[in-house]
Design a binder for these strands. Structure first.
Length: 352
DNA sequence: AATACGGGGAC
DNA sequence: GTCCCAGTATT
């Protein structure tokens, strides 16, 4: 009579993923960095970001010393930018409070910014071989199926039940391999749409398979209609061809990133620009582009304005910069801002 | 107990 | 188009 963990580990030895970038070598820094990047983000998306990140910042000390703008620059496009701000703060705390070494204790890990219960357990088990259970999207799916747990895991009662099963199955030995194994099973066999039940090592004992509808576990999130917000983004070029960007507040959407000045839909761009930034020589409107977040749609109306020369530089404040497309500075950019800057650069090339 | 927080891959 | 991803912090 072999346990859940024993069967899973036996499968892992033959079929687990063992060549992910953060597995060679396995160090607390690399485990931590990968776990933060992998929060709500798929493996294939993370890989190039992870490679660039470790190439630039070799460990906690170099990351802690770096300017936040450079961290956000390397995070551009990955989303959930609070992760990058917390990552930077976490590195500074590891240096200041732990002598530059990631703590191995669950309670201490959870005190660090950006590290919650599941990420703390992932670091403790993978980097330090401690018997701490994780509960990420893969594990939720595997356990909801194995035990036929009804309901959407976003509900706290369902979530609590899944945590109990996660703790129950966590073995005392081979903690790193077990954590990796249960995620690998969820990512490769026990997938959302087409689970490969016939070759699954856990098929005996899986209650969802017994129902004949394994793909109906876990329960779906109740869907709501996404609200639509609209905004005009001002893409202002000075006579040198540089574009004005403002830094967004540290919290909220695109926190700490650089973006175009925004004005309310319907208000007069030309008057606004004249009052705030300078006289307009030429103004072009681009087609509205829809950017969708997890909780709303944002319809962006880009307005490209060429400004007349001005005696004093209007980008004097710390939160303003003239962005040079030919030698872009290392700043964090929201995805649609990066897209618009790329389009602008392409039009510039055509015009020459 | 709910909600805010991105962007993109899979289907 | 829909769903959801190696979740956390905040309310």
């Amino acid at each position: 009579m072999s346990s859940f963990a024993d069967r899973l580990l036996a499968w892992f030895d033959d079929h687990g993923r063992k060549n992910l970038p953060w597995q060679h070598p396995i160090t607390p820094y690399r485990v931590w960095l990968s776990e933060i990047m992998l929060q709500q983000t798929q493996v294939e998306t993370v890989i190039p970001y992870f490679e660039r990140f470790v190439a630039k910042f070799s460990g906690f000390a170099s990351l802690a010393e770096a300017p936040l703008d450079e961290v956000l620059h390397l995070w551009t496009g990955l989303g959930y930018y609070a992760r990058a701000r917390n990552l930077h703060r976490c590195a500074q705390q590891v240096v200041a409070q732990h002598g530059g070494d990631m703590p191995s204790d669950m309670a201490e890990l959870e005190q660090l910014p950006g590290i919650g219960r599941s990420t703390a357990a992932a670091i403790a088990s993978i980097a330090f071989e401690q018997p701490c259970a994780i509960l990420d999207g893969n594990v939720k799916r595997v356990l909801a199926r194995y035990h036929a747990v009804e309901g959407w895991p976003g509900k706290s009662s369902v979530h609590d039940t899944l945590w109990q099963f996660a703790e129950k199955h966590m073995p005392r030995e081979r903690c790193r391999d077990y954590t990796q194994a249960i995620m690998d099973l969820g990512a490769t066999l026990c997938t959302r749409a087409n689970p490969q039940c016939e070759v699954c090592p856990m098929r005996r004992g899986c209650k969802a398979k017994k129902t004949g509808q394994p793909q109906s576990f876990p329960g779906k999130k109740p869907r709501k209609i996404l609200p639509v917000k609209t905004v005009q983004m001002l893409i202002m070029r000075n006579p040198q061809g540089q574009v004005l960007l403002l830094q967004r507040p540290p919290t909220g959407i695109w926190g700490g990133l650089w973006s175009f000045p925004e004005i309310e839909t319907g208000s007069d761009c030309e008057n606004h620009i004249a009052a705030q930034f300078g006289r307009v020589q030429h103004l072009t409107r681009w087609p509205v582009m829809r950017h969708t977040f997890s909780h709303y749609h944002l319809d962006i109306a880009p307005v490209v304005a060429d400004l007349l020369p001005r005696p004093q530089n209007i980008a004097e404040a710390d939160s303003r910069v003239w962005y040079n497309l030919k030698s872009p500075p290392a700043l964090g950019l929201a995805a649609p801002v990066k897209k618009l800057l790329t389009l602008l650069d392409e039009f510039n090339l055509e015009a020459q």
